[in-house]
């Protein structure tokens, strides 16, 4: 009873090279069959799928980034437009202001000029009038003096006299007429 047991047990731990050979052969055949028919296609499919998924995620990310960029662009464009519009308004206002000021200045200048010319005219007229009045006064004085003295006075001699007299008269009008005269 003991010996067969030992023999059987020793056959458990003995290695039959033939079986190793068959194991290797079987394994290699199974490996190549399954690699060609199952693992290869499955792994390829899985890789393909992973590639697609990662590509999809990538493209989604990219698209989102693009959309965000677009949005940001648009935002900046809008704000830029708004800023430009404000700038434009401001510039317009400024220009208008400037134009108004210019206009005002021009009109003021014109008014000033008008006033000046009017004054000049007035002065001229005044001087002319004063001169006339003087001439008239001289004539009158001479006539009066002639009548008073009832004698025919030498016209030019007496005229010079009268003029001298009139010149000595205090000016009744504006003082500056007298000043101008004396100058």
């Amino acid at each position: 009873m003991f010996l067969p047991n030992v023999l059987a047990a020793s056959s458990l731990v003995s290695v039959q090279p033939g079986l190793i050979f068959w194991t290797l052969v079987t394994f290699i055949i199974v490996f190549f069959v399954l690699k060609a028919k199952a693992w290869g296609p499955i792994l390829q499919l899985v890789e393909e799928r992973e590639k697609q998924i990662s590509a999809a995620i990538e493209s989604a990310k990219r698209e989102r980034a693009e959309a965000e960029k677009l949005l940001a662009d648009q935002k900046t464009a809008i704000s830029e437009a708004r800023r430009q519009a404000a700038e434009e308004t401001r510039r317009n206002q400024q220009e208008m202001e400037k134009f108004r000021e210019e206009l005002m200045a021009k009109s003021r200048k014109e008014a000033e000029e008008l006033k000046l010319s009017a004054r000049r005219e007035i002065d001229e007229q005044k001087t002319k009038a004063i001169a006339e009045v003087r001439a008239m006064a001289v004539d009158l004085a001479m006539e009066v003096a002639g009548k008073l003295m009832s004698e025919r006075m030498d016209d030019s001699k007496h005229r010079a006299l009268a003029e001298q007299f009139v010149k000595g008269l205090p000016l009744s009008g504006s003082g500056n007429a007298g000043v101008r005269r004396s100058a």
Partner: peptide, 10 residues
């Protein structure tokens, strides 16, 4: 043992 040895050889 021969079978496992064959597999381990692989």
């Amino acid at each position: 043992l021969a079978v496992t040895a064959g597999l381990a050889l692989c």
